[in-house]
Nucleic acid binder design. Sequence first.
RNA 1: GCCCUGGUGGUGUAGACCGGAUAACAUGUAGGCCUGUCGAGCCUACGCCUCGGGUUCAAAUCCCGGCCAGGGCGCCA
Length: 439
Amino acid sequence: MRLDELGDWRRTHLSNEITPELASAEVTLMGSVVDVRDLGGIKFLILRDAGGTIQVTAPKAKTSRRILAKIDSLSKESSIAVRGKVVTAKQAPRGMEVVPTDIKLLNAAITPLPLDPTGRVKADLDTRLDSRLLDLRRPKTMAIFKIRHKVLQIVREFLVSKGFIEVNTPKIVATATESGAALFPISYFEREAFLGQSPQLYKEILTGCFDRVFEIGPIFRAEEHDTTRHLNEVTSVDIEAAFVTQEDVMRILEELIVRVFNRVKQRCAGELKVLKHDLKEPNPPFPRITYGEALKKLDDAGVKVPWGQDLPTPAERRLGELVGGTFFVVDWPTETKPFYIMPHKDDPKLCCAFDLMHEGLELASGGTRIHQEKLLIKQLRQKGLNPKRFESHLKNYRWGLPPHSGFGLGLDRLVMVLTGAKNIRECVLFPRDRRRLVP
RNA sequence: GCCCUGGUGGUGUAGACCGGAUAACAUGUAGGCCUGUCGAGCCUACGCCUCGGGUUCAAAUCCCGGCCAGGGCGCCA
């Protein structure tokens, strides 16, 4: 198949910009072939671009044989450019169509394709991820990532309006700085380094100069988890603010979640319709349930969790059913949370930490952080960590680091909730899990 | 890592329990008919049993193992 050069052709309009006012104007469209319907005396070509789809109509009697032959030669999903005249037509899908005067085949798609890009014939998630580009041309998949884009925009707007500064911290780190999650070791010249599991320590330090910071970026966990809500590379929305406590950042988080749900519902109505997802907006203030109350509720429902343990998945789900909607779990046992979380003054067995739950799914966790070096060293020792290895972090605390609080919010999980996706892989362009490293 | 379920044309499914004959359906692809399709319609053709071993006269079907996938769990500051 001979391909045409783009040459000096440039797109003049997107498909959704073809309006009745353009009637009889010449336009140049660029996009992909969705379908060709040949009725003998008339051919219809459906072109899709970033604006949607538009019908290109070629009546046999009024179209050159060269163009008719060209249309016949096009395979689905091929990249094309169409130059033609805008025509109003009652029978056209949107009342407007384009009659071609010239068509360029810029790149041909092979046949058969590894999946149906219209989405009419189902395909397994695994098959879809293997051919993600084609999958992303499916309306449902596209809708998820348009919503994700909108969420990022809303989150940035909101946090900036609250005085937060966006920062970028290193993803290559020297040591396994925090206890807990396993890290991916990487080769860093003559040394070993790791992929960062969280921007936690960096963002805390940065409250000492920027007051309020946030970072939206990748975090890496080398855990061999194999579930519908874990990946080895995820995007977190991390915030940290000076001179505030847990309760203040919980209110920020609450407002943020409400804002995101509200704006997505308003601005992504079309995408939600494609996904057939009825988004229920949570009402503030979200219930605050203590860890102790959560255990009691679970016990009453026949689910036993020993005090001092994190909630296992089935318990989380049950609690989600019992409480319903979006809620906070507060006053966690100090032993379940990391070393930098502030213990309660009057009861150091409990700490100033919270989890944000949405229908049994943990969306975020945060708390009041320790800002006194002495206490931090004590907590490090408590967790069996060696304070000497944290020297480069600890020295910041000698320079008047303010009291601060923050949280980390899982963006991919938030998008799951907003789109109704049942598997986190649906919400990440190129997910990384225990087995998948490509594409 | 453990448990459960599965792997059939390019894609998604049926067949399998209860072994046997031309492996079915939708979509797709190729070709044909048709001047208003819009999930176009109609006709013709093409294309499939995950891999290895076992049982049997005979295996897509039963058994064992591998690999892969889906779900559940564990792990997850």
